[in-house]
Design a protein around this nucleic acid. Structure first.
Length: 271
DNA sequence: AAAAATTACAACCGCAGAGGG
DNA sequence: ACCCTCTGCGGTTGTAATTTT
């Protein structure tokens, strides 16, 4: 984590360099320089790193480029339904704490999650003509989108029904499994430790609360009772899950999803 | 085929907190 | 106690790519 001490530019040189700092998109050459430098000297002390590596970039810029793009453990590609579910759940709990949310999604950056939220979720709130933080929108997420996502997750895994996959903990809402020290990821319902599903559905958000306020009681196991999403009698949105909403064929970005909201729907929601 | 609109995402900015001198 | 630098975070912007008209 520490850049080894290297004789770098003098202060005067530094000031001169600051005058013509590069901005905008990074070139492949800059990326290579940054990667090589970090491979040799480690990351951290970004200002001096930028200087010593000979990059005409601010330390901030180098840090951002590394963390959001060049890091070897960055995960690329579409956000999976599992990840979407987690983002929704964690955001409902923590709000715009993007870095905190990102910590629960290995390989994803706070920037990526933030962008996802802004482009997808806020867009849908806009379609619903309600604020993303409104109770109405929260209910739609909680009682419609998230159950749908869970459905997709369980169908995709071809394993147990979603509800049985949701081994939840209500004891620790911020950390992962105390026993196996995993983070709160959606488990693949493998039968191994899956308390990691994490604090999903915990009391703080009251997500799924009516059905999930109880634990199995067998402390020390990952066997908390969960009865969601199949049973959601308190669904306040006015929709019946199976009848009134189209399938989420392409989860959030699905065509049908895009078309599923109308003024009538909104009216229904407000009732 | 071209223009306009929209989307997705990389990058920047400003602020706040921590730590050292 | 104060100042300065570094770091990290969340908000915002710019723009390339894609889709629609």
């Amino acid at each position: 984590m520490v850049v080894q001490g290297i004789a770098c530019s003098s202060l005067t040189q530094l000031n001169e360099e600051e005058m013509d700092m590069r901005r905008g998109p990074w070139t492949m050459e800059e990326d290579l320089i940054l990667m090589n430098y970090i491979a040799m000297h480690g990351e951290g002390r970004w200002n001096s790193l930028a200087r010593c590596a000979g990059l005409k970039r601010t330390g901030k810029s180098c840090r951002l480029r590394w963390l959001n793009y060049l890091r070897p453990d960055i995960r690329r590609g579409n956000i999976t339904p599992e990840e979407q579910f987690l983002i929704l759940e964690l955001h409902s709990r923590w709000g715009n704490r993007w870095s905190k949310i990102a910590q629960q999604l290995p390989g994803r950056t706070d920037n990526e999650i933030k962008n996802y939220w802004r482009t997808r979720v806020q867009k849908h709130a806009k379609q619903l003509q309600c604020d993303v933080h409104s109770k109405q929108f929260q209910d739609v997420m909680r009682y419609i989108w998230m159950p749908r996502l869970m459905e997709r997750i369980s169908v995709a895994s071809g394993e147990l029904p979603a509800a049985e996959c949701m081994n939840l903990t209500q004891t620790d809402q911020t950390s992962g499994c105390k026993q196996c020290e995993t983070g709160p990821e959606i488990s693949g319902c493998t039968g191994s430790c899956s308390e990691s599903a994490g604090s999903i559905g915990t009391t703080s958000t009251e997500f799924g609360k009516p059905e999930c306020d109880r634990l199995s009681g067998s402390s020390g196991t990952h066997n908390h009772d969960v009865c969601w999403p199949e049973a959601a009698p308190q669904n306040p949105t006015g929709y019946a899950y199976e009848q009134e909403l189209p399938e989420l064929d392409q989860y959030w970005g699905g065509e049908e999803y895009e078309n599923m909201w109308s003024m009538e729907d909104i009216w229904q929601l407000t009732q």
